[in-house]
């Protein structure tokens, strides 16, 4: 048996059992994504009509690789957290909800890895 009081157990955890971690990580990633998103938008605009050689060169610097990796990591983590809340809010049939949560988690992981590996390959060329 546990000697912790109900208040002690619930404090910082709440009904989701992971406390404010989800909420906080959504904010941390959001703050990171504001400058990174704007930076990458400018980069894409510059490369919009570029040929392949120019695009490859644009991803050849270590700083670009590092920032792009953070952007991809923060971006897909943020997307995963956001989709999770939307599914929790609107899908009330439990088996469907679990299926969608797994599907969106796998999709975000796959897309994030594809992006990260592409950026790494270009950075390490």
């Amino acid at each position: 048996m546990s000697y912790r009081s109900p208040l002690g157990r619930v404090r910082g955890l709440g009904s989701a059992k992971d406390g404010t971690h989800h909420w906080w990580m959504q904010r941390v990633t959001a703050i990171a994504l504001v400058p990174l998103g704007l930076w990458f938008a400018v980069k894409i605009v510059r490369l919009a009509h570029a040929d392949w050689e120019t695009a490859v060169t644009a991803f050849a610097s270590p700083l670009v690789t590092a920032l792009a990796l953070i952007l991809i990591g923060a971006g897909f983590y943020h997307l995963k957290l956001g989709l999770q809340v939307v599914i929790e809010d609107y899908v009330h049939h439990k088996p469907t909800e679990v299926f969608l949560q797994l599907a969106q988690t796998f999709l975000c992981t796959l897309l994030g890895l594809l992006g990260a590996i592409s950026v790494l390959k270009l950075g390490l060329l």
Partner: peptide, 25 residues
């Protein structure tokens, strides 16, 4: 926010395209 899944797929596809080579790009 939900629509940005589509954008994320497009963006990753573009990055994969650059990484694979000129023909796929």
């Amino acid at each position: 926010g939900v629509a940005l899944i589509g954008g994320a797929i497009l963006l990753v596809w573009w990055l994969v395209g650059i990484a694979i080579g000129p023909a796929y790009y």
